[in-house]
Simulated scan of single mutants.
Amino acid sequence: MTTPPQAIEIYIDADACPVKPEIYRVAERHRTPVFVVANSFINVPRDPLIERVLVGAGFDAADDWIAERARRGAIVVTADIPLASRCVKAGADVIGPTGRPFTEASIGMALATRNLMEDLRAMGDVSGGPRPFSPRDRSAFLSALDVAIVRLKRAGFSSGAP
């Protein structure tokens, strides 16, 4: 008897995610379940594929919930570098909202850069944050998410929904 293929699932670190509508569209096209994880109420479409997950207000509660479920076949959408690192180590595909994939090869440098910028900001040498989110970022994200789902399907994972 063969075991059924493991389902692809998408986890969104949702509090500041600018691409939730795009995720919903791609997930609907691929019939892939989505977990919208936040520590405050967020509107989500009324769709059986989309589940709102409200976690406690504790520090990193949403990150912990996502990291505990990250695995091969999961896609995590986050701009949070430490969360991305935890999920990459667990085998998940991790994509930033700008379409930037986080991989085993890139996560070390991303963490180092994040820590350096945090130190520079603390010393007052750098002010401001990331550049504004652009239509090009949105397009790159859509492409990266679609590629990740197709790659997982080719690797034997199922879309997760009938």
Rank of each mutant, 00 (worst) to 15 (best):
I66T: 09
D119A: 15
R72Q: 00
A155S: 14
A16L: 09
P97D: 04
P5K: 05
R100K: 11
G156M: 11
A110G: 09
L145M: 01
D119P: 13
I8R: 03
D63H: 09
G58Q: 02
R114W: 03
G56K: 02
D13S: 14
R131M: 01
S134D: 00
R100E: 12
L111F: 09
R69K: 03
L83N: 11
G56V: 00
A67S: 13
D64L: 09
V44D: 01
I23Y: 08
R151G: 12
D63N: 10
G129W: 05
D15I: 12
P18C: 08
D47R: 00
Y24M: 00
A155Q: 10
D119C: 12
N39C: 07
V76F: 07
Y24N: 08
T98V: 10
G56D: 02
I95E: 00
P18W: 02
S139A: 15
N43A: 15
P162S: 07
S139N: 12
E9L: 14
A62M: 13
C17S: 13
Y11A: 00
A61H: 07
T2W: 06
P21T: 15
C17G: 13
I23W: 02
A144W: 01
P135S: 11
D15T: 14
C17Y: 15
R31P: 08
A105G: 12
M109L: 11
R69I: 00
V34T: 06
E51L: 06
I8P: 05
K89G: 15
L49R: 10
G128D: 03
P18V: 11
D13L: 09
D64S: 13
P135M: 11
D146S: 15
K153I: 09
I95L: 01
M117F: 07
P5W: 09
I42G: 10
S85Y: 06
D15V: 12
Q6K: 08
V126S: 00
D80W: 07
L54T: 01
D119S: 12
L116K: 01
S158N: 00
V55E: 02
P45D: 01
A67Q: 11
L111Q: 03
H30C: 00
C87S: 02
F41R: 01
A16I: 11
G91N: 00
A110W: 01
P132F: 08
P21H: 13
V147T: 13
I10Q: 07
L145G: 11
G73K: 08
R71K: 11
D137V: 15
F157A: 04
V37P: 03
G73Y: 10
I23F: 08
P45F: 02
M109P: 07
G96H: 12
G96F: 05
